[in-house]
Design a protein around this nucleic acid. Structure first.
Lengths: 207, 207
DNA sequence: ATTGTAGGTGTACGGCGTACACTTGTCAAG
DNA sequence: CTTGACAAGTGTACGCCGTACACCTACAAT
């Protein structure tokens, strides 16, 4: 049932995942679902656990930096397979045991790398949601290559938001015709992640 | 009406802000609201704009680092006054013009500080949601000082999540009886912000 | 005096989560 | 073989939600 819910959310989007739709998808009456979950929130928790379960375990024998990096990038891959997941995670206040276990091993990687308890605490706060592979973008640059829409956006944004426009048109790294090729989310994610990891490294007491 | 909606969300929480409740609060019939907003989403957009409007303009004459820092901390203060706002912002995909204007001046601060267009782009992605003053915590350490609940948590978490427990009990910076005083969110926010700003500074070409 | 318009009203629809009482299929203990 | 517990599915109903649509009202500009 959790698998079905995940598949349904993958296919039709989280906003159209209702208990009724899921039940229909399973060929069952809505109330039947409540024999397996107490309520919709518990269903969502279970779905998150499925996604988190897809994250690779930490690689053994690597340094903390590489181990953390690889694990986070694996989390990101899982999240890209289930685009609804980050939004659902954001909306939760208390982590499930599965998420807690993920956090626990991530903390363990830092501790093993020589970070004190307190420093690890700060560092975990600093990576924030990125630890689970998503970066909480406030806006969506990477979209619409449609040149007509792009031109309209330039006309609209240009006068009032010149700085936003500059970034939007330069967007990626190449030259842009009207609007760049959008921005490379993966590049941006790794850029930020590496900046953070480098920053963390500098906080480590020299051994 | 936007003010009333903001006040209502402040008081009763965003989850209980419905068009019907807001209408009742205004002494008006639900459908009357639709003469002022096209739909609920537009209402939420307007509410966000109110919050973003509370953010102080950038201070003049400061270096980029201090200007960015102060502005972001001002944004954070606005968000702390309206705890629902971050959640609503997260759930939006397209920024309103007001948010875009905020971004635009923030980008301007970096540009004036000597950041290239591309570097500014990366840097904006890296601060991510923090630019608006919230940090997207996946879990809520700073809660429940109730020692009974705390003890129960220790009993439950201890065996399975020793690393999480270590951080939770050390929590802040002082010695902890059973569970620390919770963590100082403001400290964590500034810690992360400063780590990022320092990281950005290092990316700047030496002048 | 007319009329356009901004704003408020009333009714109604389809969707949602889920409480509660019920049936059914399965299978181990007597 | 019977029985009865229990897990799983059913059907009905309630209260809430956002909002479409037709209507009304008061007032400002012509």
């Amino acid at each position: 049932m959790l698998r079905a819910a995940v598949a349904l959310a993958d296919k039709t989007g989280i906003e159209s995942l209702s208990m009724r739709r899921l039940a229909e998808d399973l060929g069952v009456v809505p109330m039947a679902l409540y024999k397996h979950v107490a309520n919709k929130e518990e269903l969502l928790d279970g779905m998150i656990d499925v996604v988190v379960g897809e994250i690779d375990p930490p690689v053994a024998g690597a340094g903390w930096k590489s181990a953390v990096r690889q694990r986070i990038l694996s989390a990101r891959r899982a999240l890209l397979r289930h685009p609804w997941a980050s939004q659902v995670m954001e909306s939760k206040q208390n982590p499930t045991p599965v998420v807690l276990a993920y956090m626990d091993t991530m903390i363990g990687l830092f501790r093993a790398g020589g970070f004190s308890v307190n420093l690890t605490h700060h560092v975990m706060h600093t990576i924030g949601s990125r630890v689970l592979g998503f970066s909480q973008e406030l806006f969506n640059d990477s979209s619409t290559v449609d040149p007509e829409v792009a031109a309209a956006m330039v006309r609209e944004l240009g006068p009032k938001f010149p700085n936003v426009l500059a970034i939007a048109t330069a967007a990626s790294h190449e030259e842009a015709s009207v609007v760049g090729p959008g921005c490379d989310d993966q590049y941006e994610f790794e850029f930020a992640l590496d900046l953070l990891l480098d920053g963390f490294e500098r906080l480590l007491p020299r051994a």
